[in-house]
Design a binder for these strands. Structure first.
Lengths: 124, 124
DNA sequence: TTTGATATATCGAATCTCGATATATTGACA
DNA sequence: TGTCAATATATCGAGATTCGATATATCAAA
């Protein structure tokens, strides 16, 4: 079996049900970068604030994911900061990243459809 | 910090975002048992069929979860089978299990709301 | 000058899923 | 009658992921 890598064409609109949290973290980060570039710490703060605290990022989780997304070519990071002052790494979403995010979103919609189809039983 | 156990009163309507797949598997199983008792293998088949193949259970995942849910008092298993023939373990959802499932569902709805609040950006 | 927030990064422990392996029953088909 | 595939439960090791701690450093405010 060929190994599927992040953002490969094979991925299409499927999300990996066996690792939903990883998929969630990825799409939250990509969605946050859709309108403007941001550095890692800001991404985490924005997601936490916008979700009223429902989605939080530990730093030990955030940075490895950013490195992975960059390595996969879905985002691109650039160091900024005036000469020997504080350095921030600003991330931009790539064309590949936008496409990947749209496919993932389609996968999540399918997920929620089937999900509420089954767990709806609880409310009947 | 007090450790939270599955189904404890502390849990309330929160789902564990850092382990979404586990939460998903639990609520799928509990929802499937809401109307009638079933044995493990049947639970997996029913979920797979009803979700059009979106949700699948490996046996190596299914049985440990059933044992865990039973240990937590959310489901109750009873062996059945006529004397030395094939033994099936039928599971029933408990009152505690029903309550837990309803609280979890509330948590998933909150998740759903905040999720699309953020990833909706992708479609704009 | 000292504290807390900002900013990035890595590591070990704990946890979870996957796929393989094991064992046994049952029904269908040749 | 024999054999194969599906049914049924269970456990284990490998791999992946998140958490919380730890480390380092800048910046602003009191």
């Amino acid at each position: 079996m060929l190994k599927k890598n992040l953002g490969d064409d094979m991925d299409l609109s499927n999300i990996d049900i066996s690792n939903l949290t990883r998929n969630l973290n990825e799409i939250l980060i990509l969605a946050t970068l859709f309108l403007e570039k941001k550095h890692g710490y800001q991404i985490a703060l924005d997601i936490e604030e916008k979700s009223d605290g429902v989605f939080k990022f530990n730093h030990g989780t955030l940075y490895p994911i950013l490195h992975k997304l960059e390595k996969a070519g879905l985002i691109k990071g650039t160091w900024k900061g005036e000469e020997s002052t504080r350095q921030r790494k600003y991330y931009t979403i790539t064309t590949k990243g936008r496409k990947y995010a749209q496919e993932q979103l389609a996968g999540w919609k399918g997920f929620f459809k089937e999900f509420f189809d089954i767990v709806g039983e609880i409310e009947k």
